[in-house]
Computed example of a mutant assay.
Amino acid sequence: MTDATDKKIDDLDEQVEEAVENAMAAADAAADEAGDRLDDLADAASDAIGKATAAASDAAAQAKAAASDAAAQAKALAADAMDDAGEFIDDTTDWIQEKYRENPALVLGVAAAVGAVLLVGVGAIIRAITRD
């Protein structure tokens, strides 16, 4: 009976040892698989961060370009308005000199009206430039 019992114990020891080896192999395989998955997730996260950074950079560049274009257009409009105002003033000055010789009272009345119009016009230009 001792031999049969020893043989059963040896068989059980071998089975336990084999089960432990199989369990260790399975744990190693699972750890390797988990490590691979973590590496994949880290790579995916890194790619996502890179793409998000690039998208944010592109959006910032587009916003900067749009703001620059808007500022350039506003500056051009203001310059055109000032040129137009300068031409108007030159024309008005010539007219005033000619008409003053003919009728000084009429010229003073028109000059007051033109001054009011200019003030309103300049105010409108300033309001248009500073409008939100």
Rank of each mutant, 00 (worst) to 15 (best):
A105V: 09
G35C: 09
R37A: 14
G35P: 01
D3K: 01
A81P: 00
D39P: 06
A34Q: 00
A74W: 00
L41C: 08
L108P: 05
A71Q: 06
S68Y: 07
I49H: 12
A105D: 15
A111T: 11
L77W: 10
I129T: 14
I89N: 13
A112H: 01
A56R: 06
I129W: 07
A111S: 10
A42M: 04
A76M: 02
V122A: 12
A63F: 04
L41Y: 07
A44W: 03
E18Q: 13
D40E: 11
M24Y: 07
D40Q: 03
D90L: 07
L108Y: 08
G121E: 08
P104T: 03
A65W: 03
N103M: 01
E87G: 12
A48P: 01
D40H: 04
N22S: 14
E33V: 06
D40C: 00
A26W: 08
A113Y: 04
A25R: 13
D13W: 10
D32R: 10
L118F: 08
G35N: 13
A128P: 03
A26P: 02
A56G: 05
V20P: 01
D83A: 15
G109M: 13
Q62N: 06
S57A: 09
E87P: 01
S68P: 04
L106P: 07
A34K: 03
A4K: 00
V117E: 14
S68V: 08
T92C: 06
D6K: 13
A71K: 05
A48S: 09
E21V: 01
R131H: 09
E33A: 12
A71L: 05
A31R: 11
T5Q: 07
V117F: 12
G115A: 04
V117P: 04
P104V: 00
D58K: 10
R37P: 07
L77A: 14
A63R: 07
G121N: 11
A78K: 14
K64C: 15
G50Y: 02
G50M: 01
G115H: 00
D32L: 06
K7P: 02
A4W: 00
A116K: 14
A113R: 08
Q73M: 10
D13T: 02
A56D: 09
A74N: 03
A61T: 06
Q73P: 10
